[in-house]
Design a protein around this nucleic acid. Sequence first.
RNA 1: CGGGGUGUAGUGAAUCGGUAUCACGCUUCGUUCGGGACGAAGAGACAGGAGGUUCAAUUCCUCUCACCCCGACCA
Length: 409
Amino acid sequence: MRYSQYFPKTVKEAPKDEVAINAKYLLRGGFIDKLMAGSYTLLPLGRIVERKIENIIREEMNATGAAEMLMPLLHPKEIWNETGRWDKADEVMYKLKKGDKEYVLSFTHEEIFLDVARKHLKTYRDLPLLLYHMSTKFRSELRVKSGILRGREFLMKDLYSLHTNEQEMNNYYWKVKDAYLKIFKRLNLDAVVVEAAGGVFTDAHTHEFQVRSEAGEDTIYFKKGWEYWKNKEIMTEEELKDPEIESKNAIEVGNIFRYGVEYSKKMDVSFTDSSGGKQYAWFGAYGIGITRLIGVLVEIFHDDKGIIWPEAVAPYHVHLIGLNLENETVKKQVEKVYDSLQKAGIEVLYDDRENVGPGEKFADADLLGVPVRLVVSLKSGDKVEWKKRSAKETELLTIEEIINKLKSK
RNA sequence: CGGGGUGUAGUGAAUCGGUAUCACGCUUCGUUCGGGACGAAGAGACAGGAGGUUCAAUUCCUCUCACCCCGACCA
């Protein structure tokens, strides 16, 4: 990608009312655009990052044996009445009416998944049923905040599972827990598992995945000997007073639930067991906030100049800067480097702007946060300067050395 | 919803009763070229919106809208 064709261009200052780091940098770099409070457009660069996160999630979900699908966002009232959530979850739902018919914009998909499942589930041989999708959720949050970390419309990956019995459900639940930890690890995030209450979703305890960060709005607690961290909601008075308990600010990036057969009974999601009897399926649900992850990554990986993307999700592998482009020889050489990198299958953002000083190009490279910066100029001669976004040192390498270095990762 | 804050050009700011100034960004030309360069010439704002006070309102008053922050709820 040539920077001259990049849209939109970076800006020097963020709007003054943006306080959250993630909002400032993502807005300045042109990763996102704000439509209204809690509602953002993912611009081309932001979309690339989002797709990379999706792909990591997709791979790990598929590895658990789940299959991807896509459910609708406009749901009829009737389906939500079956579980009683039309009323119970009223405050988070965006409801609409057209003529006599009432609808709701999806804030989650349990009911929709269960409806699909009950239409096709016949026998225990059909189980387990493991399906997920990645799409938009609408939630009428009481207050949006922290830039992209908490909006009223966001992308989420949600996985749903049905099983023949509790044991099977539990096995898969823990398998998903491991898959989630793998996902966060691949994103360079040090997520911890936290026990929590189920909110409007379930009365049973659930597990959250929290990334420790000052920007976090949750507080999580841990004491030596505990198997998991605990969410504030389930802490007891005595525990809160215990001086040996460690507490941290954290951002929730994922959550897993075991509903048991509660919803299956309400919606009659049943199957014929091996002895010919009718049984209700055991149900689990598992979510990851994709949009939020973009914000979390920025909150965790940045410095005073901009973002420092982990390699796995960086929009490009390298940021190539051409300086002294008025010099024909240099210009030809950068173009050649750009070409070779692309032919080698390396994703490159090439700052091909003429009449723009080096300082500005360097500042943009720092802001955008691509892991490796390459510079071709009069000074670099027939070599290329290599610098990691996270480091200070630079080194001069040949294009072959650079390609090898990038390929060997 | 309660509390607090901010709205002036694309962005950041100045003006705080006499109809708007600056910087960055943008356009054109030239000079520059290793950490947001320089010169010249331009374009761009009915001061968030409505109402009121006044001879006169960006400025004072009332209402309203938007955004940000704190609290109650959540990936």
